[in-house]
Structure formats: structure tokens, C-alpha cells
Design a protein around this nucleic acid. Sequence first.
DNA 1: CATATTTAAGAGTATTATATCTTAAATATA
DNA 2: TATATTTAAGATATAATACTCTTAAATATG
Lengths: 153, 153
Amino acid sequence: MLSKSCINGLRASILLAQKEQDEFINIQKISSELNVSFYFLTKILQQLTSSGILESYKGPNGGVKLAQNPGEITFRDIVISIDGDHLLKECILGLPGCGIEKPCPMHEKWTALRGNLQRLMEDVTLKDLANGNDLRLSDEISPFKSINLNIRN
Amino acid sequence: MLSKSCINGLRASILLAQKEQDEFINIQKISSELNVSFYFLTKILQQLTSSGILESYKGPNGGVKLAQNPGEITFRDIVISIDGDHLLKECILGLPGCGIEKPCPMHEKWTALRGNLQRLMEDVTLKDLANGNDLRLSDEISPFKSINLNIRN
DNA sequence: CATATTTAAGAGTATTATATCTTAAATATA
DNA sequence: TATATTTAAGATATAATACTCTTAAATATG
């Protein structure tokens, strides 16, 4: 449902919310903690920076940090920044004309469920996520090895 | 959320449910009614046929038809046949170790919502969908032209 | 000011998903 | 039995996403 870029952006953001928010965190460090390629993660975090969700700083002791308090950044903010709002706006059958005036057969049920998804994403902040369980996994089940086996993209 | 293949498989199935179910319907005809490439649709319907959701018949007056009554084929059946069960099984953060014993921060909320999605998909049959509004759209808002503009893939 | 460190930006490659084409197999019917 | 029609299967092409690399820009510190 979410792209890999989005998932990694979320995981990195949650990790940032778990750390000291005054200092910039090195992307190399984040990538090794999350077991994600440095190059790939850098691109993703650039996107979050350009959306204003993160701030970055170049040079020694540089890195990225959250631009606001974790409690003010929602799951939805990050999804929208990376994957756009397609998921939250489109007809489940991909019909562009679908709407109240000309609903597709799934319209009502899907908009209701999508509303719940939207609400969930808006309600959950990085603060909530940071207080949950640790995202870092042991090596045997490192996300990247397994994601490649399990996920279709 | 659903792949284009899946969306087209669903739309074709709904269309079949709206037609006479005793006779085989020509794929060429379906593709022009849905405004989807014949080649692409053929591949998709082959998948549904191999899953046993459709039956096909070669030669003159051949085509495809539903293998069961529309009321017995669910939205979920078609999604699973084409996109697999990833959406209904995986962690929203893509963490392979995520589960009751070792939940990710989104685990509880996501499994609840995913359960609703699963139930929605199981409850809705092709009969329900066929009785809803027409899926065929006018030319100006033909799915393919607009999907290409609106959808990311 | 020179060097090392770190992100930014853009280009390049690889993989997967989407879409098309070609040939084969089945079958109706003339 | 020959021909036309139609789906099946496999090959190819194109587009999107995932991922990597290189160079540039910013900046701390010796």
C-alpha cells in the first residue's frame, strides 16, 4: 500500500523522534540503524526536507532533524510528502469520474473505509509512534533482506 | 492500493456479472466496453481463469464467463488472485518480524483497519457490484486517458 | 585557507510492473 | 478438411520504482 520509499521515510522519522531533537543526526548513522542503504535513504530524506518535515545541515556534525515537535508531525504528513495523496483521494476502482454524483459500485463503502484510514493517519503522530516498540530488528530478520523476499513493491 | 491489473480484473468481472452468465463473452468486446487494451486485459483474465474464477472457451463464439454465480465470487477473491494477499497480511511499515509478540508501533491500529478492509472485501460480491451503478464511462473521461494522468501506479 | 565531513542534486543502473506483439492451440462452421 | 475465430502462452517493449554513484555545495575545524 505504501511505497518502500514511504515506509523507509516513516521509519527514519520515527527513529528521529526517539532521539534528541536539538541535534542533527547523521544520515549514515540512521541508515545503519535501520539497515537501509545510505544512498536510498538520503534521497528519501531529501524529499522530507524539501517538504519542511525535516531540517538538514551540511558539513561536519551535520545531518537531519525533525522540523517540529514529534507530536506535531503526523503519519499522514509523511505519507503525503513521499507517496502523495492518491491513496486518500482516489476511487478504489481507479475511475476518475467516481464521486457522489456518479459513484462506482464500491464508492460508499470505500470512502467510509478510506475515511477511517485518513483519520488513523492524521491521529497518529511521531510522538505516538516513538513511544511504541522499537523499530530496529535483529540481523537475521533485517528489513531489507526480508522485504525483498516478501514485498511486491 | 490495488494494482492496475487488479482494478481491470475487477471491472471486467463486474461487467461479466452484469451480463448473461450462460454464454461466453468475447474479451475483445469486454476490452472495448471498458476502454482497456485487449492485450492487457487478456493477460489479466488469463490469471482469473487459472485461479478458477473465470472459465474460458477458445474458438468462434468463445470468450470468458464467471465460473460461479456472481453472489459467490467476492471482491477479495479477485484481489487475491491478481495482487496476492500482501495487502491483507503485511505490516504497514513492512517489518517482517511484526506481530503480536513483537508489534511495530502501528501494529494494533493497522491490523484493526486491515480487518475492516478484509471484511469489506469478503462481504462484497460481484452480485452486489453488478447491481450498483454502471462502470462504463463516457469517452471524455475514459478510464485510460485519465488514469494515466491521475494515478502514480 | 586547506581539508575533511556531510547533505544536495543530478545522472545512471537495476528491477518490477505495465503493456504489446507473435505464435500456438482449440474449436466452430463452411 | 480448410478457414476463420478466439483464448493461451511466451517473448518483447516501455514505464515506473527502487537503488547506486558521482559531483557540487556548505560548513566545521586544524
